[in-house]
């Protein structure tokens, strides 16, 4: 059995989740503070992948990053970077596709913290960043962990977006979900089952781990 689609999937999910922590968490913090029409529009755009068919998102990304014209051509000519049918393209699409799974829970958790926590920190002379790092973030740990695991698990299960922008190139863009589809097309049900079982097991263990962690957290709060 060729395990490269599994390793590629784990690599993609790992990189995507790391990028989402760096980009999505501060973004959720920005969205959680104050209300403006501009923020509502931005939040709606970020949430779109939740409701859009993945193939639609993949189609527009394919058009946007096509090396024949527009941004895609400029990126290829200026930086020799190609997002279509490449691993970096999968990473970009995954970050966009899984963004609501990171931003949504983190933003809600931050909004549920009493405003006086940040205010108390400001009166101690702490900047907004210090307050975020030392007071706000540590107090949303369960939600943060849930968001990280959901983003990772969601990336593991991507299919439509990945197929549209990445295609099915072995070792480059053929992730596990594509390998399942490809195996079924070739009537190789044994391989399809192996890939499916591995994906199922990984995601099941991840979800169980989140539930156990959250239950442990709730118990420790009750003393």
């Amino acid at each position: 059995m060729d395990l490269s689609p599994i390793w590629l999937t784990l690599k993609l999910a790992g990189i995507t989740t790391a990028l989402l922590i760096v980009i999505g968490v501060p973004f959720a913090w920005w969205l959680s503070r104050g209300k403006s029409f501009f923020k509502i529009i931005i939040e709606a755009i970020i949430t779109m992948p939740l409701v859009l068919p993945p193939s639609v998102l993949g189609f527009y990304l394919l058009l946007a990053f096509s090396p024949q014209h527009g941004i895609g051509k400029w990126l290829r000519d200026s930086f020799d970077v190609q997002f279509v049918f490449s691993f970096q393209g999968l990473v970009l699409a995954s970050v966009i596709y899984s963004m609501p799974f990171m931003v949504g829970p983190v933003k809600s958790a931050l909004q549920q913290l009493p405003a006086s926590l940040a205010e108390a920190s400001y009166t101690l002379g702490k900047s907004q960043w210090q307050t975020f790092k030392s007071v706000l973030l540590p107090n949303i740990k369960p939600s943060l962990l849930t968001a990280i695991v959901l983003s990772f698990a969601h990336t593991l299960g991507e299919f439509g977006v990945v197929l549209m922008i990445g295609g099915n190139i072995p070792g480059v863009t053929r992730v596990a979900s594509i390998a399942v589809y490809d195996s079924v097309e070739k009537m190789d049900y044994a391989s399809a089952n192996n890939y499916s079982l591995i994906l199922f097991s990984i995601t099941f263990v991840l979800v169980i781990a989140v539930f156990v962690f959250n239950k442990y957290q709730a118990k420790s709060h009750l003393g």
Partner: peptide, 11 residues
């Protein structure tokens, strides 16, 4: 500033 609901940091 001493807040009415204390505003202590749970962490």
């Amino acid at each position: 500033f001493v807040f009415q609901q204390y505003a202590l940091f749970p962490n």
